[in-house]
Simulated assay, not measured.
Amino acid sequence: MPEVMFAGPDGRLEGRYHHAKRPNAPVALLLHPHPLHGGTMNNRVVHSLYGRFQAMGFSVLRFNFRGVGKSQGRYDGGIGEISDAAAALDFLQAVNPNASMLWVAGYSFGAYVGMQLLMRRPEMGGFVSISAPASHYDFGFLAPCPCSGMIIHGEEDELVPLNSVQKLVDKLNTQKGVAIDFRTIGDAGHVFTPPQVETLSDMAEDHVLSVLNRSRMALAAD
């Protein structure tokens, strides 16, 4: 789990990076919760997903947004953080030029930033959004959403009502060629307990592996 520092738009950014052995391995970028509310790359959800993507054979990066940990700069209201994520993806692509697929996974604020990144980088092949803050931010920018993906939400989320996320899912699922794998966790709030983190990690792994398997089957059929 080597520490890495890479250039961001407002100074150097701190991350942890695992490089897969396979030369054309898929890559995943993981984005943490809100910097002003204690969010860091060591958040238990982000840390758990980091291990899962690694186990699935991905090259995977988690990093601290500007102003968090050793990352330089200051919080920028979500705008600069989208640029940070783009810089992190640049780093991933530079060290994985032959990656077979690009994924982004984010939790809470990180889910918002990740879905903004989708719109800026059409080469993205999949996403996992956990506790997407659909009641706090306007997700109307996903028109059209560039790829299918997964959304996971706690049924008892006290910060983001389940129905706000259901509306987002319904809207995305009406788009041509887009299918959202929407799963909920009973009794889960916005912050997940360790057992709930395992549950959501299992869900994410199940989704990602199914997409990878379909991709491999499609390639074999060509």
Rank of each mutant, 00 (worst) to 15 (best):
M5D: 08
G11V: 03
L13C: 01
A20Q: 03
A20E: 05
A25K: 02
P26C: 01
V27E: 00
L29M: 05
L30E: 01
H32T: 05
G38I: 04
M41K: 08
N43H: 14
F53H: 01
F53R: 00
Q54T: 13
S59F: 02
L61H: 04
R62S: 03
F63W: 02
N64V: 01
F65D: 00
V68F: 08
K70E: 14
K70N: 13
I82T: 13
I82K: 05
S83I: 07
A86R: 13
A87H: 09
D90T: 15
L92W: 01
L92V: 04
N98D: 14
A99Y: 07
M101A: 15
G106N: 08
F109N: 03
G110E: 01
G110A: 11
M115W: 04
R121P: 00
R121W: 06
E123Y: 10
M124Q: 04
M124S: 05
S131T: 08
S131L: 04
A132N: 10
P133D: 11
F139Q: 01
F141K: 06
G154L: 05
E155G: 08
E155P: 03
E156M: 13
D157Y: 10
N163H: 15
L168S: 03
V169I: 06
K171M: 13
T174Q: 14
Q175D: 08
I185Q: 04
G186L: 12
D187V: 08
H190V: 04
P195R: 10
V197D: 00
M203V: 08
L212C: 10
L219M: 14
D222P: 07
